[in-house]
Every structure is written in structure tokens, then in C-alpha cells.
Amino acid sequence: MIPFIFKRIINLIPILLGTSIITFLLIHLVPGDPAEAYLRLSQIPPTDEAAAHIRKELGLDKPLYVQYFIWLLDAFQLDFGESFITGDPVFEEAIYYLWPTLQLTLAAIVLTLIISVPVGILSAVYKDRLFDQVSRILAYVGASMPSFWLGFLLIYFFSFKLGLFPSGSRGTFVHIVLPAVTMCLVYTFTFTRLLRSGILEFMNQPYVMYARSRGLKERVVIGKHVLKNASQPFITAFSISIGNMLAGTVIAENVFAWPGIGRYFVSAIVNRDFPAIQFCVLLMTIIFVLINLIVDIIYAYLDPRIRLKGDQLK
């Protein structure tokens, strides 16, 4: 298990390097001069002289690969440059905003699992009955619902009309309820269907029939022989969706004025704050890659074929 994890971590390095190179290149190749953005944000008149001066100061006059190496060297010391807007190190700013986002995502994930797993199992067990039909309709609704609209509806009814939850910003536990619900509802019913079809697929496996033939209780048959196998496609989809959820926080944070990295990123995009944009992209990659790693470890834990692979061949 340990060598397995170690190997996976080593594999991450080229991915991160690749991402940083691509982001770096794209930012510098795309129209829109960072020096001009800097001047605009610092409210200095963008004359040619001023631009040349700033280019020199920011190191933008050097060849691209030199710039990249300088950036990389700095990155190793956790120096990702200063925000054009605030002048503060983007690393510190981003980390400051990251925590609330992780909190929100985590709440949404937990909520999604709490709802979708039992509903998925029940939909499979009561296939084509009323329960299943309702969950099918909800899946359509969930897949077609714009999350920002859902957020507004929730605010309007639960906050303004009923006064049950606050309409925005961060604070006590109740503040997280509406944004988390907004983020989770979109995914929950899709997952429900996914889990349902996974279960139904594995229900017909010969080993499930054999488990039944030995007189195991239905609860054991489903829980042990079906669910553990059926959970793998579910986990794959889930890991992808966690990434999408993280990106989706952008919207929830915007609707509920949640002070997270999503809002930070959006304002950086709007203002063309290049160091902040670059670091946010990198951060998203790192988080997503880490999620993948965790998922792979869960896989290996669930499936001995992955854990013990290589025993037989070579």
C-alpha cells in the first residue's frame, strides 16, 4: 500500500509541472498585456515609457523561458508573486480564501452522500415503482436547474419569506446550509441514478446469485456483494464531480456572498490580475490531483485486484 501511494505521488510531479508551464505560456501568449493590466490597476497612465518601466520591474522583458524559471524558483519558496490589485502575496491571499471554500465543498459533499446513497439504493431495490419514478423525475429537474437560480429561490423562500436561514456571508453553522444545499442538489439526483444503475448492473452478476443461493440475508447480499462493487463507478463519477463542485463553488459563493477562493478567482479574472489567476489555476489543479490520489487510494482499499496487482504478472 505504501509503495503504491508513493508511486502515485511521484506521478503527480510531471502533471503539476506541465500545468504550470501551460498556464504560464497561455497567460503570456493570450492578447492582453500584463504590464498594461498592472498599470491600469495601479491607476498609472499607460504610456509607453511607464509600460517599459513596469516590464523591466516585473521581469517581463526577459525571454519567456527565463521568466518561467524565475517563476518556478520563486514558486519553490512559495512565492507566487504579488496581486496587481492589493500588492499582497497571492499565495497568502489565496490560502486565506481557500479554507471557506473547502468548508463549503465538504459540507456539500457530505450532504450529497447522505442523500444520494440511500436514495440510490432504494431506487434500485424499488426499481420502476413510485419511489424510483419520483427520483427519476428529480434527476431531470436537478440536471436542468441552474444552480444560481436555485440559490436565489432558496434565499427568497427560506431566508426572506420564512426567515429560517441567513441569506449570505459566512458565520455560524446556519450560514452554510443554503449554499451547501444549492451546490449539492444539482448533483445529488444525478448520483442517485448513477448508483441505481450501478447496483442494478451488479445485481445480475453470477456471484450475487451464488451469494443468494447460500442463503445470505438480502441485506448482506446488497450491502456486501453488490454495493461494494457498484460503488466503484460511483466513486469515479463522484471524484470528477468533486472537481466540478469545487468549480461550482464559484457560483454558490457568488450567490451567497461566501468569502471563498471562487469569488477571489472571479474578481481576479475580471481585473486581469495575472499572478492571482495563475496561482488559482495551479491551486485548482493541485486540489483536483490530490482528490484523484485519494480516490485511487480508496479504490485500492476497496479492490484487492488493484492493491495486489503485479503479483501474478511478472
Binding site: Q205, P206, Y207, M209, G215, E218, H225, N229
Partner: peptide, 25 residues
């Protein structure tokens, strides 16, 4: 029926390779 399965009547299924749950020892 469940009480009879395995205890009274046991099945030896046709395809041994497919009859074991791959992730259970």
C-alpha cells in the same frame, strides 16, 4: 426460501470463475 438456500439445498454453480465476488477473500 432463504432459510432453505444453503442450509437444506446447496447449489454448486456452473461457472466457478464468475461465482466468486472478486473483491472478497
Amino acid at each position: 426460501i432463504r432459510k432453505i438456500r444453503g442450509k437444506e439445498i446447496a447449489l454448486i454453480p456452473q461457472n466457478p470463475m464468475a461465482s466468486f465476488n472478486p473483491i472478497i477473500s
